[in-house]
Amino acid sequence: MKLHILGCTAATPRTLANPTAQVLETKRHMFLIDCGEGTQVQLRRQKLRFARINHIFISHLHGDHFFGLIGLISTFMLLGRTEDLHIFGPKGIKEIILLQLKLGNSYTAYKLYFHELESKETEVLFEDDRIKISTIPLAHRIYTNGFLFQEKETEYKLNIPVLEDLKIPVVYYPKLKQGGDIVVDDLIYRNADLTFGPLPQKSYAFCSDTKYYEAIVPIIANCTALYHESTFLEKDAALAAKTGHSTAKEAAKIAQLANAKQLILGHFSSRYNNTDWFKQEAITIFPAVTIAYDGLTIEF
């Protein structure tokens, strides 16, 4: 998994910071998570291929999380896109986008599929043989979801030098890749002696926007990386509670309770001119903290 931060500021664009948007890249997919203003410019700056984006996940219908969507959809059309595009987001997103396309007389030549969300329980949105994507119900001023991206168990990696030494026929390789033992000429070969075992399953939890909400902890437990909004510092905790946001310390507490391996902080209020302050507060509770910034790439 490789995460590209396209934008991580709260509410409005700034000179050197864009509203929320991320790309999670896997071997087979490129998922766009939220789509604030400037997203397609950031995609170009980071040299990410537009054509690989077939699934877009919108957390909620506050503008700083989806105002870039209609522009991206239109650019796809101008680039001659033919692949289907799937958009997952709260109920109402289909009406918003189709009204803009209708009034602009600019319907797409490719198929748009809207998957509108209403459930307040976690649900699976997408699944194939490599990855599962589920919602993380959050607690904000309006209906909001985060998203959990979970790798499925990968194939076992073959120890080719050992296999060749033992002259194991390649016909047995598929069974070994699935973790099975094999019998060759009445001799039993244990899988552990012929493979390196599967790589650890990775998972990424995206949580923005939300107040401090411990109900998400069982859903995101043991995640490889957690992105959690930290709009405010602790001195403004009352404002965070009033607006349905979190402080850096609250985000760190969620990471600690969930036993996350890494915490990525973002969605910073423009009232602060130094994002290092967020890290300084968070590491008093959780040590593995990364501060998001536009252009940051993290490989898990």
Rank of each mutant, 00 (worst) to 15 (best):
G71P: 06
L72W: 04
S74H: 06
S74F: 08
F76N: 07
R81A: 15
D84T: 13
I87D: 06
F88M: 09
F88G: 01
G92V: 02
K94R: 14
K94I: 03
E95T: 01
I97S: 02
L99Q: 14
Q100E: 10
G104M: 14
N105C: 14
S106A: 15
S106E: 13
S106M: 15
Y107W: 12
A109I: 08
A109N: 14
L112R: 07
Y113I: 15
F114V: 11
E118L: 14
E118A: 14
E121Y: 08
L125E: 00
E127R: 06
E127C: 00
D128Y: 02
L138R: 05
A139N: 12
H140V: 03
G146A: 08
F147E: 00
Q150N: 11
Q150V: 08
E151D: 01
E153C: 00
E153R: 07
E155R: 05
Y156E: 01
K157N: 00
I160K: 09
P161Y: 02
L163G: 06
L163F: 10
E164H: 10
P169F: 00
V171D: 10
Y172E: 10
P174S: 10
L176V: 11
K177F: 03
G179Q: 02
G180I: 06
D181A: 11
D186K: 10
L187T: 00
I188P: 03
I188V: 12
I188G: 03
